[in-house]
């Protein structure tokens, strides 16, 4: 080590990196907030539903965590919990990616569906999980969303979708993934025809084939502050147009301003907002 090295400015605390801290709050004692760069006790963060108490940065939640803070305790009845993906294209390393996601999340694929009560309202619910291959939609996600919507029609229940699907249509299932966009949108059309409310909550991130199908078709579309929402990923756009994107591009606030989101809601207020909306539709 030379003398000069002693004077290099180092970060006070080691950062977990923007990406990984977005994905999951590590098991350590503290987490650095990518929003305000402050360090938060994990206990405090957990208590606050993984929202930074200082700057309100919304950390990503797993589908289970999301369910837990959304539904009335003990009310969940899961649909198709054992449905899992095949590898119809023999796509290289798809099986190992699936296996990794399964052990990481404890889920069989990127969506959990079922019925529950939310603020006392009986509803069908679907939550996608970014930690499972980016929350991307292949045959299983498409099938589970459609089945959930069809059950809602059968049972005359509203549908609540909470999306964290930055991965869009899942590349590893090729054309079959693409077709899930049509399949889920067709089911959303039936839901609408049946006169049942459909509420979507967009969380960070929701992009591509999921944004361009069922996630954009809610009667009401809510978004968490700062969530990245769009069709093409920022990197793809930058490569296409060969210029830097403006600050805040494709964030929830941008979508609100352009008319594609009804309302931005803080995580702590989501259930109350759903309750207000359901009371308007259903009471």
């Amino acid at each position: 080590m030379t003398l000069k090295d002693w004077f290099i400015k180092r970060p006070k605390y080691s950062s977990t990196g923007l990406e990984s801290s977005h994905l999951r709050v590590p098991d350590g004692l503290m987490t650095k907030c990518p929003g305000c760069e402050d360090v938060i006790y994990n206990k405090e963060l957990e208590k606050n539903h993984k929202v930074c108490p200082k700057c309100s940065h919304h950390f990503r939640l797993s589908a289970r965590e999301r369910l837990d803070i959304t539904i009335d305790a003990g009310s969940f009845e899961e649909y198709d919990s054992d449905m899992s993906s095949a590898n119809p294209l023999d796509f290289p390393e798809y099986e190992s990616k699936l296996a990794k996601s399964m052990s990481k999340t404890g889920q069989t694929d990127a969506v959990i569906t079922g019925q529950a009560t939310v603020a006392g309202y009986k509803t069908v619910i679907a939550v996608t999980d970014f930690a499972f291959m980016g929350g991307s939609m292949g045959s299983v996600v498409g099938e589970k969303i459609v089945t959930a919507m069809e059950r809602a029609i059968e049972l005359r229940l509203p549908v609540l979708v909470i999306s964290a699907s930055g991965g869009g249509a899942r590349m590893q299932e090729g054309i079959l993934s693409l077709m899930q966009m049509a399949k889920t949108s067709a089911a959303a059309a039936r839901l609408r025809e049946a006169g049942l409310p459909y509420i979507v909550v967009l969380t960070d991130p929701t992009m591509g084939g999921v944004a361009a199908s069922f996630a954009s078709l809610g009667d009401v579309i809510m978004a968490e502050p700062g969530a990245l929402i769009g069709f093409a990923g920022p990197r793809v756009i930058e490569q296409t147009i060969r210029q830097k994107l403006p600050e805040g591009f494709q964030r929830a606030e941008f979508q609100l301003e352009h008319g594609f989101v009804d309302i931005i809601v803080m995580r702590k207020d989501i259930v109350a907002t759903i309750s207000t909306l359901y009371s308007f539709y259903l009471d």
Partner: peptide, 11 residues
Amino acid sequence: GQSEAIASSLR
């Protein structure tokens, strides 16, 4: 709204 346009067209 590219996403909204495509989604609406599918529906």
